[in-house]
Design a protein around this nucleic acid. Structure first.
Lengths: 160, 160
DNA sequence: ACACAATAGTTGAATGTATCAACTATCAGA
DNA sequence: TCTGATAGTTGATACATTCAACTATTGTGT
């Protein structure tokens, strides 16, 4: 029990990942306002927007995969899908091979709204222009490696 | 009206910021689960956690500044502060110089819980270790410049 | 002083999010 | 065929979020 507390604090301070992650979260927070404002034009909430983002046009995706992509409960997905389906943006389709499964697909209107919404709400922020094209490329490659490292450590929550 | 649609799409595809921002959001999404799980131990919701994070121990901060830091409505801050105060984690203090203002401060219990919570829920993810210390330093500096560029373009919402 | 606008914060209503437990239906394997 | 796992829904509950309307207070211009 020499100096456990100050040692622990020093360790945390010295972790070179700390500052990077703190800045990551701050950048995230900084863009919440622009994001919400852009979504308001489409009458979409953030979770609804992320759900739409996860739907590739022309592709079908199971609800349990949406839950895993959004890291949320299955019943939450039921709720979100209900709202978007009632607006005619998506559709539930039954899977002929497994009748438990409901495949979600974009409607024509949904695909159109999704494209516009992605361009406005998910567009890169102006502040990214502070980086040169070379720096952007570096930034992208670093993020890509972080994401891959995460995916390698964490298997998909959904079975199959 | 030569080829407006394909030109627009090509422009978007060519924007070097696009891939970087998409990856940024994917990294954010990827860590939602770990974040929520860590917060569950403290019975805190994400907004409550970000509110606590914005409170420096020993410092006082106005509610309108919290609203601006969290990019949310003032009445939402009232709501969040109510909950945290009822748990004894923070306190409202009146400002002697301006009686409209309520300054928020951490209680002793709040400061303790905040420290533990920051270390678990806001700790850098393991996936950041995929980067070398030199790369982490680059990553941090790039994020810092993006954040600064944002702050330069957007003045604080709160007066003063 | 006075009227007036701006600011800080609260309240109540309305809607959406999120989780949990309990449930139905379906599939897959011993 | 029994059993357990999986996909999804439902209802209950709590919290988040915004809006409009409101009180209280401060600052400004005349």
């Amino acid at each position: 029990m020499g100096e456990p507390r100050s040692k622990r604090i020093a360790d945390l301070r010295d972790d070179p990942r700390n500052g990077a992650w703190r800045l990551f979260l701050d950048v995230m927070l900084a863009h919440k306002e622009r994001f919400s404002a852009a979504l308001a034009k489409f009458d979409l909430s953030p979770p609804q927007a992320f759900l739409l983002r996860s739907l590739a046009p022309g592709a079908e995706i199971r609800m349990c995969h949406i839950a895993s992509a959004l890291s949320c409960d299955a019943s939450n997905v039921t709720n979100l899908v209900d709202r978007l389906e009632s607006r005619g943006l998506i559709e539930r389709q039954s899977d002929p091979a497994d009748r438990r499964i409901r495949n979600i697909v974009l409607t024509k209107a949904g695909a159109k709204l999704r494209t516009q919404m992605l361009q406005e709400a998910f567009a890169p922020p102006e502040s990214l222009s502070a980086l040169t094209p070379a720096e952007l490329s570096t930034f992208e490659s670093l993020l890509s490696r972080v994401l891959k490292a995460h995916q390698a450590s964490e298997p998909d929550a959904c079975a199959e």
